[in-house]
Amino acid sequence: MIDPSVLRRAFADYARTILDEYSVGEVLYRLTDQCVELLAVDAAAVSLAEDERLRFVAATDEDVVHVEATQIASGQGPCHQAYRTGHAVFVNDLQHEQRWPDYRAEALGHGMVAVAGLPMEVAGHRVGAVNLYRQRPHEWTGDEAEMGQLLADMATGYVLNARKLDEHRTLAEQLQQALDSRVVIERANGMLAQRHDLSTAQAFERLRSYARSHRRRIHEVADEVVGGDLDL
């Protein structure tokens, strides 16, 4: 069941953010959290397109990072299909799915069983796709499909509006900025894992939890970890 208060917060956040300059990578990380909170899914991820090729830029946890990396490397999966066709893709149980063998094996290996791929598209302009994950078989409802697509449309709005706010910044440059943020986050994640003898999943959650609890941007926190100014 959709929580109206969570939906209102997501819209309010979108309205505040869209009026000013912002980091595309940062707002997409925040949007994946909103997907989890609003739709009660277990994880979410976003990929953006560059020259018709998807690039993974944001996810809610380290397990999904591995799943999305396999999807991008293999060029197969619900995210790719949603992006190419412009239509949402819903899989209730990957254990009974015959498509995308590499992606399917990786997703199941990381405990992801049900998945939805949602296109990021406005007026025929496709910029990427959003993936939603559940750790158990799940029959996706019409309300979930509608609300998930609304969140994907918000992600599209973030990307396209950022381009309008800075006419000199191309979509490719926005994507590169998001990818650069991802590299810093991965470095910080690796440093925390090594420093505190954590799994990469535990380190990633520690990084994100600190950013959330202190109302800070995750890539700024990661910058400080990498620079030696912060230890979590």
Rank of each mutant, 00 (worst) to 15 (best):
H96D: 13
E186H: 10
S74C: 05
D61Y: 04
L165Q: 14
G128N: 01
L192Q: 11
Y29P: 00
A178V: 09
R99T: 03
V46I: 07
A58M: 01
V221G: 13
E106T: 07
E139W: 14
A145M: 10
M191E: 15
T85S: 13
R208P: 07
D42C: 02
S5A: 08
S47R: 05
Q202I: 08
A188S: 01
V130H: 02
V159Q: 04
R99C: 02
V64H: 00
L19P: 06
A193Q: 11
A12F: 12
V130T: 04
Q194I: 11
A88D: 12
R134D: 05
G157R: 05
D231P: 01
A188V: 03
G75R: 05
T141K: 02
V91N: 02
L192T: 11
V113N: 00
E220N: 12
L171P: 09
Y158C: 05
S199L: 06
D63R: 13
P4L: 12
V183K: 13
V221T: 14
A105M: 09
Y83I: 07
V130I: 01
E21M: 15
E26I: 00
D33P: 10
D63L: 08
Q95W: 09
H125Y: 14
G77M: 04
L118W: 00
G117C: 03
M191S: 13
L108P: 05
R182S: 06
P4K: 07
G75F: 06
G109S: 07
I218S: 07
V57C: 04
D93T: 06
